[in-house]
Amino acid sequence: MAEFKTEPRHWLLIIALLLALYASYLLIAPYVGALVLAFVLSLLCISLHKRLEAKLPGKPNLAAALSCTALVVVIVLPAGLVFFAIVQQAAQFTKQSYQWLSKGGAEKLLQHPSIINGKEKIEHYLPIDSVNTQDIIQRLTEFASSFGKVLLDMGTKLVGDITGVLFGLFLMLFVLFFLLRDYDKVVDALHWLIPLTRSQENALLTEAKNVGRSAVMGSFLTGIAQGVAGGIAMSIVGMPGLFWGTMMAFASFIPLVGTALIWIPAALYLGLTGEWGWAAFLAGWGVIVVGSIDNFLRPILMQGSSNMNTLLIFLSLIGGIQLFGLIGVIYGPIIFALTAVLLKLYAIEFKGFLEQQDKS
């Protein structure tokens, strides 16, 4: 390995470079989400883009433009339309729920013999005070009212900030165009500038690809498939399919519980209201169809992806959503995975020192 001797001018250059990088970060901080998403999508789309580029020799601009256009047509436009439909259906469901609560639907349901027997057993075996039915109804009414307000605020904010949403989308596609067109140049530049060995750099880049594929293919597509299947069943039994299907898609990210968090209470509600046939249908669909998607589709989509355990994936998902919003389901796992790779590289690079410290 070539020996590198630092001189005062090197430190001056490094300090100036760090200050310049920090100032540059401040300039792009409002748009960092779009930039990171463009980078992740470039890692995921590069294989398909290379195939398209091979069919269009000497036309890199056209190939990159077609790849970005395909992304918009296949993913962005349908996702936007579905989102607006979900907000509309959710608002309608919230209104109906509030009316049902106001007209005594919850009170009638809570007087069901099974509910009363279950309430008595809970009060008998658990050290809790008596559960007041009116308190439950009041809390449900308050939740329905506040949930409706949240949806209204969300829709208003989205419509009011439509310019910002479109600008972020345009920026993401603009950056993605250049990342796809100049992918090899960008990768070579990163290899040259990052002061790591080529094997270490490849390990980081490979892990970013694997986790990005895992987060999108394994989690997103499995969640979407479960949401679609669950939404179909909800529509058949007379519930808002699009809304509850979306809730199932989100619930699929929760380990162990998953979509059962949605369809089990729904099946119980149908049973308690006398719709035992539909309740059995929904429960069977949840176990056989929705459950089978998670058991069979997820392992197929995640072949060759990162081997992060379930706990780390769950923590990275909820932490990513908390920090970055919905896009955090991609950011979180990538941050955790790159941290794990850096820890492995650290353990290899300082193996002798760590062993010496462990023995001392």
Results as ranks from 00 to 15, higher is better:
Ala2Ser: 12
Ile14Asp: 01
Ala20Gly: 06
Leu21Asn: 02
Ala23His: 02
Ala23Thr: 08
Tyr25Glu: 03
Tyr25Arg: 11
Leu26Ile: 00
Ile28Thr: 10
Ala29Gly: 04
Pro30Gly: 09
Leu35Val: 09
Leu37Trp: 06
Leu37Gln: 04
Leu43Thr: 08
Ile46Thr: 07
Arg51Cys: 00
Ala54Gly: 13
Lys55Met: 04
Pro57Ile: 06
Lys59Glu: 09
Asn61Asp: 15
Leu62Tyr: 00
Ala64Trp: 01
Ala64Asp: 00
Cys68Tyr: 09
Ala70Thr: 05
Ile75Pro: 01
Leu81Ser: 05
Ile86Cys: 06
Gln111Arg: 11
Gly118Leu: 10
Asp135Phe: 15
Asp135Asn: 14
Arg139Pro: 01
Ser145Met: 13
Gly148Phe: 04
Gly148Tyr: 04
Val150Cys: 02
Met154Val: 06
Lys157Ser: 13
Lys157Met: 00
Leu158Trp: 08
Gly160Thr: 06
Gly164Arg: 09
Leu166Arg: 00
Phe174Met: 12
Phe174Ala: 13
Phe174Leu: 14
Val175Ala: 15
Leu176Thr: 10
Leu176Lys: 09
Leu176Ser: 11
Phe177Gln: 00
Phe177Thr: 01
Leu179Trp: 01
Leu179Tyr: 07
Leu180Gly: 03
Lys185Glu: 00
Lys185Phe: 00
Ile194Cys: 02
Thr197Met: 05
Gln200Asn: 12
Gln200Met: 03
Ala203Tyr: 08
Leu204Thr: 08
Leu205Cys: 11
Asn210Phe: 01
Asn210Gly: 04
Gly212Trp: 02
Arg213Gly: 14
Ser219Val: 14
Thr222Arg: 03
Ile224Leu: 15
Gly230Ile: 12
Val237Pro: 05
Met239Val: 06
Leu242Ile: 10
Trp244Val: 06
Trp244Arg: 06
Met247Ile: 07
Ile254Gly: 11
Pro255Met: 04
Pro255Gln: 08
Leu256Ala: 12
Val257Met: 11
Ala260Asn: 09
Leu261Ile: 09
Ile264Lys: 07
Ile264Ser: 07
Pro265Met: 03
Ala266Met: 15
Ala266Pro: 01
Leu268Ser: 10
Tyr269Asn: 09
Gly271Lys: 04
Gly274Glu: 04
Trp278Arg: 13
Ala283Gln: 10
Gly284Asn: 08
Gly284Ser: 05
Gly286Asp: 02
Gly286Ala: 02
Val287Trp: 07
Ile288Trp: 08
Val289Asp: 07
Arg298Lys: 15
Pro299Lys: 08
Asn307Trp: 03
Met308Pro: 01
Met308Asn: 12
Thr310Asp: 02
Leu311Glu: 12
Leu311Gly: 08
Leu312Cys: 15
Ser316Ile: 01
Leu317Gly: 05
Gly320Glu: 03
Ile321Pro: 01
Gly325Gln: 05
Val329Trp: 04
Tyr331Asp: 13
Pro333Val: 13
Ile334Arg: 00
Ala337Val: 02
Leu338Val: 08
Thr339Gly: 15
Leu343Met: 14
Glu349Phe: 02
Gly352Cys: 06
Gln357Lys: 13
Lys359Glu: 11
Ser360Asn: 15
